[in-house]
Structure formats: structure tokens, C-alpha cells
Design a binder for these strands. Structure first.
Length: 272
DNA sequence: CGTAGCGCCTGCCGGC
DNA sequence: TGCCGGCAGGCGCTAC
């Protein structure tokens, strides 16, 4: 479910409560996520360790400790919350870390497409992380990078910006929104974008992601509320989930098409 | 190599 | 009301 802005908001929401606190216990209630939770690694390494920092790479959260790093991906429906140590687990609470300061970090993930991993060496060298595109908000993600990656590509531009070796952190919602922002038809082929349009798309992606992160900042308190689900903040979408509604630029109807089994929303007039 | 399609799961919503 | 199909914000893996 969560895309980069939601993951970053989660990171910011939990870090101040956990950094420099000591893990006392690892609890695994349901090890069957996308991959089995490496119970032995976690239980042998994490208790008594201080959590040094929490970083993000793409949609992965990395919890750095001295013996290694815990890596969490939220998949389609995962969320992390801070709760008091005595709060009762609910349905789909699969994994948690307890801390010496009487708080706990709990992973809830109804669909179980998420992942909890362990990496004893450099977490950025983990096989699921090492080949990711540069961070979309960094200088390395620029027109040059995108135009090189799109060269000769016969897939639709939408599927290409959802490929995390080309752009990381952008899922279906922000792919739709970024393409609208850049006025690019999601169905055109990667190789059809010239350098100018690559630059426009890079700028649109950065703008959309930044705006969503900023918006998420106002809902940070949700991540330490013991009740309910995190209620991911919603950007006011311009095309996503708006089929049949008027385009905010030209008033013609937003259309929905299915592209590689993913809902794709766009304006036929404005996006060419 | 690049591309398309599958499948892992649960929950919810609309139609009958 | 209940059942069923379809859909949902991800993504690695496989087949071609």
C-alpha cells in the first residue's frame, strides 16, 4: 500500500520514539510474510542492542543496530505503530520489537505482502536493495539518469516509472499523479520521451513526492496513537480514482484504463 | 537482455 | 441477508 511518502512519514513518526533505546524482545506472531521472518537472526542479534538510527531506501525502512540491520518493507497493506508495551495485539499484528522504555513497535499487515529481513553486513548491499534506482529526491535522480534508462525501451512510460530500477518509491498512485503533472500520456513508450520530457517528468515526480511527504508531516501523530490504523494521509489526487470526473485543467473526463493489471487514470486531452 | 503475466494474501464493495 | 466476482496503494519470479 504505502509508497515512498508514506514510508518516509512512518520513518519520521517512529524514529524520535525509538532512537537510542534498547531492544528487549522480538515477538513474531505470524512468520509467513512475503518471505519467512528470519526468526533466529532477529532473536539472536537484536535483544540488548541499542537502535542506532532508522533510515529509508526507496520503500524499505532500515533499522540499524551494531550486529546488523533489520529491514522492513510494508508491501501493500503494512503499517508500523508505536504503542505502550502492555497494549494487546490485534488481528494481523505479525511482528514487534519491545523496548526498555516500555514502548513497542508493531507491524500490522493484513495482506502479508510485506517483509521483515535481516542483513548482517551493509544493508544497502542487500540483494533487494542494491539495484534500486537512486533516491528520487536526490540529485542523482535527474534528466540524465532517466533518459539513459528510457533509451530504447518499448514498455509504457507508466510501467517504466513503476520499475524500481528506473525510479524507486513511486507506486501506482504517484505514477498516475506524476504523469498528469508532467502532462505525459501513461501509454506512450519509454523510448518516445525526449530529453526535455524526461526532465519534465523528473521534476514532476520530485514535486509530487515532496508535496505528499509535506502533507504526511501533519499526520505524524497518527503513528504513535495506539488506536486504529495509520490512516495514510491523502494528497488531493488530480487523476487517481477520479474516472468520469472533470480534468482540473480542461474539464474533459478523466478516463480509467487497465495497464499491466494496474488501474491507470489520465486525461486524454492534457496528457499526450 | 526486456517485457508481460502470475501469484502471494485479506478485506471490502457492488450486484444479484 | 448471503454469496460471488472483482478490485486494492507491491514486487519478485518465471516464461517467452
Amino acid at each position: 500500500m504505502p509508497e515512498l511518502p508514506e514510508v518516509e512519514t512512518t520513518r519520521r513518526g517512529i524514529e524520535q520514539h525509538l532512537i537510542n533505546h534498547t531492544i528487549t524482545k522480538v515477538i513474531i506472531r505470524q512468520p509467513k510474510l512475503r518471505w519467512p521472518i528470519p526468526s533466529g537472526d532477529l532473536k539472536n542479534n537484536l535483544p540488548t542492542q541499542k537502535l542506532l538510527r532508522i533510515t529509508r531506501r526507496g520503500k524499505y525502512l532500515i533499522f540499524h543496530c551494531r550486529p546488523g540491520s533489520l529491514i522492513i518493507h510494508l508491501g501493500m497493506s503494512g503499517s508500523l505503530r508505536i504503542m505502550p508495551i502492555d497494549s494487546k495485539p490485534k488481528r494481523h499484528d505479525h511482528f514487534e520489537l519491545n523496548f526498555e522504555n516500555k514502548s513497542l513497535l508493531r507491524l500490522n499487515d493484513p495482506r502479508r505482502f510485506g517483509a521483515v529481513l535481516w542483513e548482517s553486513k551493509n544493508p544497502l548491499k542487500h540483494r533487494l536493495i542494491r539495484d534500486l534506482a537512486p533516491e528520487p529526491l536526490s540529485k542523482k535522480f535527474d534528466r540524465e539518469w532517466l533518459s539513459t534508462k528510457l533509451k530504447g525501451r518499448n514498455a509504457s512510460i507508466k510501467s517504466l516509472i513503476m520499475n524500481n530500477q528506473i525510479v524507486t518509491g513511486v507506486g501506482n498512485i504517484y505514477a498516475n499523479e506524476s504523469l498528469f503533472e508532467a502532462r505525459i500520456n501513461p501509454l506512450i513508450l519509454g523510448k518516445e520521451l525526449n530529453k526535455d520530457r524526461c526532465e519534465g517528468l523528473v521534476k514532476a515526480i520530485k514535486k509530487i513526492l515532496k508535496r505528499a511527504i509535506k502533507l504526511g508531516g501533519s499526520s505524524l501523530q497518527d503513528y504513535v496513537n495506539p488506536q486504529g490504523t495509520p490512516g495514510y494521509f491523502q494528497l488531493k489526487y488530480k487523476v487517481y480514482n477520479r474516472s468520469g470526473l472533470p480534468c482540473q485543467i480542461c474539464k474533459s473526463k478523466i478516463v480509467k484504463e487497465t495497464l499491466l493489471q494496474r488501474a491507470t487514470y489520465f486525461c486524454r486531452k492534457c496528457q499526450v
